[in-house]
Write a protein that binds this DNA or RNA. Sequence first.
DNA 1: ATTAATGGTTCACAT
DNA 2: AACCATTAAT
Length: 758
Amino acid sequence: MQNLLHNLNPEQLAAVTLPAQSALILAGAGSGKTRVLTTRIAWLIQTGQMSPQAVLAVTFTNKSAKEMLSRLSSMLPINTRGLWIGTFHGLCNRLLRAHHKDAGLPQTFQILDSSDQLSFIKRLLKANNVDDEKFPARSVMYFINGAKDKGLRAAAVDAYDDNDRKMVALYDLYDAQCQREGVVDFAELLLRTYELLSRNQPLREHYQARFKHILVDEFQDTNDLQYKWLKLMAGNQAAVFAVGDDDQSIYAFRGANVGNMSAFEREFQVKNLIKLEQNYRSHGHILDTANALIAHNSKRLGKNLHTDAGHGEPVRISESSSDIQEAQWIVEEAKNLMREGSSGSEIAILYRSNAQSRVLEHALFSAGLPYRVYGGQRYFERAEIKHAIAYMQLMDNPHNDSAFLRVVNFPTRGIGARSLEQLQDAAKQYGISLYAAVPYVPGKAGNSLGAFVKLIEGARFETQNLPLPEMVQVVLDLSTLLTHYQTEKEGADRIENLEQLVNAATVFVSEEGFGQNAPALSGPSSQAAGLLALPGGIEIIDADAALPMVMSPLSAFLSHASLEAGDNQAQAGQDALQLMTVHAAKGLEFDAVFITGLEEGLFPHENSAKEESGVEEERRLMYVAITRARNRLYISFSQTRMLHGQIRYNMRSRFFDEMPEESLKWLSPKVQANWFGNKKSAWDEAPEAGVNAIAQGFSKNTGSGWRIGQGVSHAKFGEGVIVNIEGSGSNARAHINFGQFGMKLLDLSIAKLDKIAS
DNA sequence: ATTAATGGTTCACAT
DNA sequence: AACCATTAAT
């Protein structure tokens, strides 16, 4: 006990030992937030104030849920498997499996990840002859998810014009189709659980009585639905312990609402608001930089981080002439760090968008530096894995039409567009799934389709008593996926990935506790699942925390594949540089951090520039990036960058003007505003900005010194870069990127432009 | 029915 | 530059 609270600072101690009332903890970056959360749970249990069953702890990522569990198990001698600690989505999945009947779902319902959802919608639009010019699948998806994130069904959405009304109608169609196929998307997991508990009083009261303490991590990232979900779970009794940092709210794009923090304070009558402002992570210059930057945001709850650590190293800034050169510079600096004794896994390379990783990976690979990419294309998103999963999905739930279409003719078995058309007509006519419609297709097409159905049925029969890993192996063989990729030229990697799937299944079985005597799910074992007798003779089978209680190993594994896309399978444990987006880096820390691509249009991203709130979110994102670093921070930008196969010319990010000069060290000469003259700029000295660049238009100039890539200054629009020139001589007009002012087309003989460097 | 070729689109972030 | 979807050729 003394040990538990040992080494906490006064604010942390106060937070951990608060009475059982709702509380809001404003925890700055690096202030020991996870420590406070886990110690709070351990303290409540150890002092006997609550039993382990009474805790519900919610996080956003599987990573942080795992982190909490492992820290807890080192603090307490209890089996953490029984604890309700997980992501919103993971917990909802469990609840829905256990109460699938009440929720109106098949026990084997399957979860659509975002790419599944998109193709599902494309199929839906096609089947209903919707003009996909007017209603692109992406915007339909955005509309549906946006509504669900607010907790709204189609009937509850306000539509003000024809376009909206059509969207609402599509939303309704979409939900109906999901229901027919037995599939749910991410947002549906939450919405369905919310509806289940609001409708079902005994169930609601059961869980409300059970969870005396609800703890929420990253509270600033909750959306409206998640907030309502928490209110429902809490009822009138639970103490909600919310930990968050408004300065790190970076998920508005998927519905997060920072306003939930003040709403929580008001609606839960929070008397205990504690600020954790002591930073234990970063050196002074790094923290000063972060503080100065975030001070440019207007809407803040107010909080300033301080540290006892010294100033440390200044923040190093580097300018490059191309993205390739930027990557080269990072390789060199990383090598230096490692030569000085840094471990590669303590060095992170961060970027705004996944597309940037390619160039970095290329440079690292050529230099022979081991690296690991997080996010991007993940293991379970690879085509061959999706195929294998689709076979298993069909075995578990044959009405999943997406899975059916994915593999009905892969590997090819003579089922073409024509046969499928017949099948789809039959399915529509009888209102049934494609799988169920197969018997209604006559002739040759019907025969090949029938053979496919037999294949699935056979696989299900042969694997019904096998442990999961062996089941996967059999599916790989029977589906002929392995033999198919053996005959393909570049199939070696794919075969390796497929064989990894058997491994993944083995690991999953041992981690999630699906031992050889896992319940066979011929009906949940009432003893294992904790049968509860409630007054009035109602029995509730509690969705106890461990997965084996509520679903079969196969269903669980398929959920896992959707919910936990699987970090890139790169060998964990290897000492590799860490590559990821800034979003993916939230919650992590490293000795050294590189933040790349600090350019107008990229960071802040151009799509965010339209509204001030967008730029403020980008600034918070940069704040998150900076505060990941303990000792060393590098920030880089480049004059040119390849995008969509074309060279783009960008100006350096406005964020440089918002960071304190005294904490920065410019490695390449800083280009002054309106600087021009005889001294050559880095640009002039760097013709290697590519042979490509020259080929693609550098030769295009007007003969008067204007050329693509030339930096210019304009009285009204400020600084910009010429990105294209049309015409010549006195007719020459230039497309100029003025960053904040956007793209302008100016007549070179009329507009008053000055040349500047970069 | 399957493959090769073409052309339009996209890369912002993610449970 | 890479990806997908549709079209043309086998």
